[in-house]
Write a protein that binds this DNA or RNA. Sequence first.
DNA 1: GTTATTGCAAATTATTTGCATATAA
DNA 2: TTATATGCAAATAATTTGCAATAAC
Lengths: 144, 144
Amino acid sequence: MESPKSDRAKEMEAALRRDGVRLTRQRAALLEVLGDAEDHPDANELHRRAKGLDETVSLATVYRTLSVLEAQGVIHRHAFEGGGARFETADSPHHDHIIDLDTEEVIEFRSEKIERLQAEIAAELGYDVVHHRLELYCRKAPEK
Amino acid sequence: MESPKSDRAKEMEAALRRDGVRLTRQRAALLEVLGDAEDHPDANELHRRAKGLDETVSLATVYRTLSVLEAQGVIHRHAFEGGGARFETADSPHHDHIIDLDTEEVIEFRSEKIERLQAEIAAELGYDVVHHRLELYCRKAPEK
DNA sequence: GTTATTGCAAATTATTTGCATATAA
DNA sequence: TTATATGCAAATAATTTGCAATAAC
């Protein structure tokens, strides 16, 4: 096998068509790049990668398409500390993030317990949680 | 009583002096405003309030002073969704935030359980939490 | 009297938008 | 064909910075 992830690009493509959004050459390149991404790139990095597939993609189109995809719920936009927004496909179940302060690397995790506690706390204060943001800014623990 | 909070301004003043930072007229105004704030204002709002005490305070000085205070750990800077950074004095114990999506209002809460779980999760993945960010974006729950 | 601090205006960074042209459906 | 999308360059928004003037200590 070679690029098992391109299925994600196809799924995103389908979501666009479903909403009557035109699939341009530039968008196809961006979808491919998003589908292949194993990390959490920012708009600039996505632009850089997309240009590798189609030289004509402009940064403005990257931003515009990211907004469309986000509105469709196909990708998620994260505003981690420092720098601009970073993106990931929305096909994996909900999770929160650990950000390695030294490498900028992002690790995903999920905790049912924390999810539950959040809802409980909000409820006690008379609120419903619409969405949340839990980010742990971390350093590698010293060798045990 | 009238302004029981101004003690906070005095404490911040002391922190500045301790580090040999000069207490200018403009900084005094900002400290007063920060000390009196019961909410989580942004730089612009702080500037607006500070000008009420000293017409000569510029927005640039507000930003510069906020940076100094943050570096000293005297105030905290929060980057909630949408708009610019918002600030609060650092004298209350650590807490997280609920942001009311309809009013922009910020409610503070604290959960030992969540704090503990965060540290556990990070440890399992080989990390130490340096700091974190937990924000619940909420709407008022419908009447029971 | 020094040296930090100021206001102002210009610079930065990330992102958005107006407009004439190109293109997907 | 025709409305949607594009690239480019200019516009925003939040924040930072260079510099000559000013004011803390």
